[in-house]
Amino acid sequence: MMAEPVDSLLAAVPMPLLLVGQDQRLLGANLPAQALFGAIEPGRPLVTVIRTPALLEALDTVLAGGGPVETRILRTGALQDISYLVRVSAVEGLGRRAALVALTDTTDIEKVEEMRRDFVANVSHELRTPLTALMGFIETLTGPARNDPAARDRFLGIMGREAQRMNRLVRDLLSLSRVEQEERMRPGERIDLVALLRAAIAALRPVSEAAGVEIEVLGGEAPIALPADSDQMSQVFSNLIENAVKYGGAGRKVTIEITRDARDPGLRGPAVCFAVVDRGEGIEAIHLPRLTERFYRVDAHRSREKGGTGLGLAIVKHILNRHRGRLKIESTRGIGSRFTVILPDM
Rank of each mutant, 00 (worst) to 15 (best):
I201F: 11
L100N: 10
I283A: 12
M233H: 08
Q235R: 13
V316R: 07
F295P: 06
S331H: 15
I283W: 10
H323C: 06
T129D: 09
V86K: 06
G266W: 08
G336P: 02
L63G: 12
Y296T: 11
G220K: 09
R186A: 15
H323G: 09
R165W: 07
T142M: 11
A285P: 08
K306C: 04
R72T: 14
E139H: 15
G310A: 08
L103R: 08
K246V: 06
R117M: 01
L103Y: 04
G21N: 10
H323V: 05
R190M: 13
I315F: 14
A250P: 00
I342L: 13
G188D: 08
A200Q: 08
R146E: 08
G220P: 06
E221K: 06
M233R: 04
D264P: 09
L46A: 09
D231Y: 13
A150K: 03
G95W: 12
L288E: 05
A195F: 11
T340D: 05
N30D: 12
N243A: 05
V276I: 15
I158A: 10
R263N: 13
I329G: 09
T332S: 11
A199E: 14
D192L: 07
G136S: 01
P68I: 04
I319C: 11
M166Q: 15
D299P: 01
G248M: 02
P42I: 05
R198C: 03
A202Y: 05
F295A: 03
I40Q: 05
V298L: 15
G136E: 02
R198V: 01
G310Q: 08
R190I: 12
I158E: 09
A262G: 02
R87Y: 05
P68R: 06
E189F: 02
P187S: 09
L10G: 04
G38L: 13
A151I: 07
E70N: 04
I201H: 07
E281Y: 01
H301L: 12
V298F: 15
L100I: 10
L327T: 12
P144A: 03
Q164P: 09
R97T: 15
A285S: 15
G93Y: 04
R96N: 08
G28E: 03
L56H: 11
I50A: 13
S177Y: 14
P130W: 05
E257Y: 04
F237P: 06
L131C: 06
L169W: 07
A99Y: 00
A12I: 01
R117N: 00
L127G: 09
R263I: 01
P265F: 13
K246R: 15
A244T: 01
M2A: 07
M346I: 04
R302V: 04
S208I: 01
A202L: 14
R168A: 10
G28M: 03
N147S: 07
K246S: 03
A150E: 01
L311E: 13
P14Y: 11
R324W: 12
A228I: 11
R44M: 09
M2G: 00
V101E: 03
L226T: 07
R116Y: 08
T292H: 10
A228K: 00
V47L: 12
V47H: 11
G77H: 14
D105T: 02
I256W: 02
K328I: 14
L197C: 02
G95R: 12
S238Q: 07
A250I: 00
D172G: 14
I319N: 14
A98F: 02
L85I: 03
